[in-house]
């Protein structure tokens, strides 16, 4: 029998999952993850560090958009100068609309790309999908997964600790 990837504990409500996750975190488990059909606000602080980079990267995307828009607009008038009544070639106020739009699109694309890359999505399959009852994680199931790779993980101890809290425990096969 192949080595299991970890233990998946099933809960019937969000509150026990939140308590178990916070408790496990406090005990020192780090390679754990909670699964729920919606974000659990009490757990967000645990996972916020990677998420809090999104606004910063979005700002960077906006700056990239601004740079690209200015390069395109100023470059095109320098490349093909049009003298309209002696007005300045690089008329900054009239370039602002496109620059603003590029900034917004740049920020939006950067944010969504950060979401996808940081969460390693899209992916076609994940071992967790093979676990029993896991399809309910997107519907009305609440799950706590503790990886076998966690230094604190011990099949007997962790299983016993989870069994005190969860309604049932599934093993996740690779």
């Amino acid at each position: 029998m192949p080595e299991s990837l970890g233990l998946l504990a099933e809960f019937d409500a969000p509150q026990p999952l939140v308590e178990a996750s916070l408790h496990a975190w406090a005990m020192g488990y780090r390679r754990l993850d909670a699964f729920a059909p919606f974000p659990l606000e009490a757990l967000l602080p645990l996972f916020e560090p990677r998420a809090s980079r999104v606004p910063g990267i979005a700002c960077f995307g906006a700056l990239l958009g601004v740079a690209l828009a200015l390069l395109m607009q100023i470059g095109s008038v320098l490349n093909y100068p049009l003298n309209v009544g002696g007005r300045p070639l690089i008329a900054v106020p009239s370039l602002m609309v496109v620059t603003f739009l590029f900034a917004v699109v740049g920020a939006a694309l950067a944010a969504v790309l950060t979401l996808l890359i940081t969460s390693r999505l899209p992916r076609l399959h994940h071992p967790l999908f093979g676990a029993q009852a896991f399809e309910r994680a997107s519907d009305d199931g609440f799950f706590l997964f503790i990886e076998a790779a966690d230094p604190l993980f011990d099949d007997q101890v962790t299983r016993a600790w989870l069994a005190e809290r969860a309604i049932c425990i599934h093993e996740v096969q690779p």
């Binding site: 729920a36 916020e48 739009l101 944010a111 969504v112 979401l115 940081t118 969460s119 999505l121 896991f134």
Partner: peptide
């Protein structure tokens, strides 16, 4: 669904991204 599995790590990212997109959509 792009392989979405409801991980709270993903949810934290999702919330931040949605917030950024919402803030961008209004001035747009």
């Amino acid at each position: 669904a792009l392989g979405w599995r409801g991980s709270q790590r993903h949810w934290a990212l999702w919330r931040q991204t949605t917030r950024v997109l919402a803030m961008l959509a209004i001035p747009l």
